[in-house]
C-alpha cells in the first residue's frame, strides 16, 4: 500500500508538471501567433503553402466518407423517431443544424487530429530526438517561427474550410437517406433545412473549427518538442498528441456551445 502522503506528493508533482507543460505550450503558441504576420514572407511562404496543401489534401478521402455517413446516420436516427409523429420532414433541420453547429467541426477536428496532428507530433518528435531542433537553435532559427507558425496558419485556415466541406456532405447524406428511406423529397428536406439553420449556427461552427485547429497545432507541436528517448518516445508523443487533442476538442466543443446558446 502506498502511503497517503506519498500519493499526495506524487499527485502534486503531476499537477505542477501539467501546469509547466501548459505554460510551455501557451508560450509556444503565442510566439507562433506573433510570427503569423511573416507567414507569407519570402523565407516562410513555401513552407506555409506546403503545410496548407498537405493539411487540406491528406484527410480529404476520410473526411468525405465520415461526413456522408454522419449525415446519413443522423437522418436515419432522427427520421425513425420523427416518423412516429408523422414529422419526417423535420430531418432537414435536425441534420443541418446538428451538422453545422456540432458534428461538422467535431468530426473534422477528430479526423484532422488523428491524421494531421499525429503526423506533426511524429515529425517534430523525430526532429527533436535526432538533434535537428538543437541544430536549428544553433543556427539561430526559431523553431516556433520555422516549424510551428506554418502549421498553425495551415490548420487555422484549413479547419474551417474542411468543416464547410464536411457540413455540405453531411447534409447531402441526410438528403439521400430522407429521399430513399423516409419518403422526404430533396426539395422538402432542403426547404426545412434552410428555414431553421441560422447564420449564427454557421459562425459558431466555424469558430469552433478554428479553435480546434489551434488546439491540434499546439498539442501536437508541443508533444513533438517534449519528445525524449528515441523512436519509442516518438511513438509515445504521437499517441499522446492524438488523445489529448481528442479530449480538449470534446470539452471545448461543449463549452463553446454552452457559451453561445444559453
Amino acid at each position: 500500500m502506498r502511503s497517503p502522503a506519498r500519493s499526495t506528493r506524487r499527485f502534486g508533482s503531476q499537477v505542477l508538471q501539467l501546469m509547466h507543460d501548459t505554460g510551455h505550450a501557451m508560450f509556444m503558441l503565442l510566439e507562433a501567433a506573433y510570427f503569423m504576420r511573416y507567414a507569407f514572407s519570402k523565407r516562410s511562404r513555401t513552407e506555409t503553402a506546403t503545410q496548407m496543401f498537405t493539411t487540406g489534401i491528406k484527410s480529404l478521402a476520410v473526411i468525405t466518407v465520415v461526413a456522408l455517413f454522419t449525415g446519413m446516420i443522423l437522418a436515419l436516427q432522427t427520421g425513425l423517431e420523427l416518423r412516429r409523429y408523422g414529422q419526417e420532414v423535420y430531418i432537414g433541420s435536425a441534420v443541418a443544424v446538428s451538422m453545422i453547429r456540432e458534428m461538422g467541426p467535431f468530426m473534422t477536428g477528430l479526423i484532422i487530429a488523428a491524421s494531421v496532428g499525429s503526423a506533426i507530433a511524429a515529425q517534430i518528435g523525430t526532429m527533436t530526438v535526432s538533434e535537428e531542433i538543437a541544430a536549428l537553435e544553433v543556427m539561430s532559427i526559431n523553431p516556433n517561427r520555422f516549424l510551428v507558425m506554418p502549421r498553425l496558419v495551415a490548420l487555422i485556415v484549413m479547419m474551417p474550410l474542411l468543416t464547410v466541406y464536411t457540413n455540405i456532405l453531411g447534409i447531402l447524406g441526410g438528403a439521400l437517406v430522407g429521399a430513399t428511406q423516409l419518403g422526404v423529397s430533396v426539395q422538402a428536406y432542403m426547404d426545412n433545412a434552410t428555414q431553421f439553420a441560422t447564420n449564427k449556427d454557421l459562425y459558431v461552427g466555424l469558430f469552433k473549427a478554428g479553435v480546434f485547429g489551434i488546439v491540434i497545432t499546439a498539442v501536437s507541436c508541443h508533444q513533438g518538442f517534449m519528445t525524449t528517448e528515441g523512436a519509442v518516445g516518438v511513438g509515445r508523443a504521437t499517441r499522446r498528441a492524438v488523445i489529448i487533442s481528442f479530449l480538449i476538442i470534446l470539452v471545448l466543443g461543449y463549452v463553446i456551445t454552452r457559451l453561445f446558446y444559453i
Partner: peptide, 16 residues
C-alpha cells in the same frame, strides 16, 4: 553569441 559558432552534430542533424 551563437553566430560566432558553427556546429557539426554527432548525428549530422540535417532537415529530412
Amino acid at each position: 553569441t551563437r553566430t560566432k559558432f558553427g556546429m557539426l552534430f554527432q548525428s549530422a542533424a540535417l532537415l529530412q
